[in-house]
Amino acid sequence: MKIVIIKYNAGNIRSVLFALERIGAEALVTDDPDLICNADKIIFPGVGEANSAMNYLKERGLDILIQNLKQPVLGVCLGMQLLCAHSEENDTECLGIFSETVKKFIPAEDKPLKVPQIGWNNIYNLNSNLFTGVAESSFCYFVHSYYAGLGETTIARADYIQPYSAALHKGNFYGVQFHPEKSAGMGERILKNFIQF
């Protein structure tokens, strides 16, 4: 099986590669369109800023390429947000796979929580084979200032200031807001589930 991690101007890409190695899967980090299109599974990772990431993808034609992928695709963190319709982060039009929009966390008066959210939080209402073997309210590791709201493609919920999407799914596209590559055994199970699709 050929697993490709899409290389672009975002961080934590090698962490995903190492996590796959730990579960016995080999992957290739590349921005080569032919290699991406011919992969069996594609991971679209990322920690970074939405606007510069979208510009980078557009300049290389990777935006259209990603939109037309037919094999299973897993967006992680910024990767998931870029698969949504729009992000408030520098008013960025995103790839539009998921209809949800991405908004900034605003601490509420009765919930003076810190932004970004950094740390371990529960995931609930798990509704996908991505979560086979993952217990309800398991803990995953999150680092983010922006979130996708709840919508028709939500397959897991998390709560921080308000409920939001911890994971999304539509057709062959999956997205997780948390970092499975840093979420200990639960994260490894989720990555295993994805590569076994």
């Binding site: 962490s15 190492f18 190695e21 730990r22 590791y141 590559e181 840093k182 979420s183 200990a184 490894e188």
Partner: peptide, 8 residues
């Protein structure tokens, strides 16, 4: 560390 450890 990054190769072997599965937490941040």
């Amino acid at each position: 560390i990054a190769h072997h450890i599965n937490i941040p």
